[in-house]
């Protein structure tokens, strides 16, 4: 076969730095980093992107993403992003946040940025647990899931219900597009990628706030093998957090 006929089927997206990361084997963060970077490459937006890193396992995202990034205090990513977007409205401003960051300590910032209709894209990694701090209960931890601060698993009477923040945000008039995806199969990964792309397109058209929630495995703190973790998302986690488009105003055009 000649050189020219050889098709390149795998390469590093330019929006990702050529470096190894610290994520555990089977962790969803690495997969999402990659698809997010691919979308930016495909849209030619790398040099126009400003990202906000969370405090959580993805705290070092600025070491992996090959575009401008700033660190936000735990939970405050959308407030920081608001500041950036208002100063540089022509840039693609995105936050990348875990469930604790977005839906526990950062709930107020999240709801108010969404409610203001900030023209920002949020990629929300829901792994139903606190990864970085070693497996404590998250706001999204489902009933019965064991964590280091819920002896016997989450107890609805003691610990309350898991929060479906995406559906709560859908109530805000100025959220344009919210979809929940998973990265449990090639098909689902492609869907997640399409969703991220759509979110970025919405922002670049100036339509308003959008968020893509991604159910993502944390094999380490779920105490499962990577394979078990993927299956657990499909069999168990999706029952509390069904996949699909939660809100989409892009068709009706009244999003902004």
């Amino acid at each position: 076969m000649s050189q020219a006929a050889m098709k390149r089927i795998y390469s590093m997206p330019e929006s990702l730095k050529d470096t190894s990361n610290h994520y555990c084997p089977g962790c969803g963060h690495s997969v999402v980093h990659r698809i997010l970077a691919e979308v930016l490459d495909e849209m030619g937006l790398r040099e126009r992107t400003i990202g906000v890193a969370p405090v959580g396992c993805a705290v070092l995202a600025y070491n992996y993403f090959n575009f401008d990034m700033v660190e936000a205090p735990h939970g405050r990513a959308l407030a920081v992003a608001t500041g950036i977007k208002r100063v540089q409205p022509d840039k693609l401003v995105l936050t990348y946040q875990g469930d604790g960051d977005l839906a526990a300590i950062g709930t107020a910032e999240t709801i108010h940025a969404a409610n203001r209709g900030e023209k920002i894209s949020t990629v929300f990694i829901n792994n139903a647990i606190y990864g970085m701090t070693g497996g404590q209960m998250a706001p999204t931890t489902i009933e019965g899931l064991w964590s280091t601060t819920t002896p016997g698993g989450r107890d609805l009477d003691r610990d309350g219900y898991p929060i479906d923040i995406s559906r709560m945000l859908a109530v805000c008039p100025r959220t344009v597009y919210i979809e929940r995806c998973a990265i449990t199969s090639p098909k689902n990964i492609r869907r997640a990628k399409r969703a991220i792309r759509k979110s970025f397109e919405i922002q670049m058209k100036g339509l308003g706030f959008s968020l893509v929630e991604i159910l993502s495995p944390c094999p380490t703190n779920w105490k499962m093998s990577p394979k078990e973790a993927w299956m657990w998302i499909e069999k168990v986690l999706e029952r509390t957090y069904p996949l699909g488009v939660i809100k989409d105003l892009t068709e009706s055009g009244d999003g902004g």
């Binding site: 604790g100 526990a104 404590q136 610990d159």
Partner: peptide
């Protein structure tokens, strides 16, 4: 609210306070 390096303290109390009929809440923030 969890934060390293003190997580072992709330983790301990999450079960210890249950034993003595006390209250342990992991809040949404500090």
């Amino acid at each position: 609210y969890p934060i390293t390096p003190q997580n072992e303290l709330p983790e301990y109390l999450s079960s210890r306070l249950a034993e003595v009929g006390g209250t342990f809440i992991q809040a949404e923030s500090e």
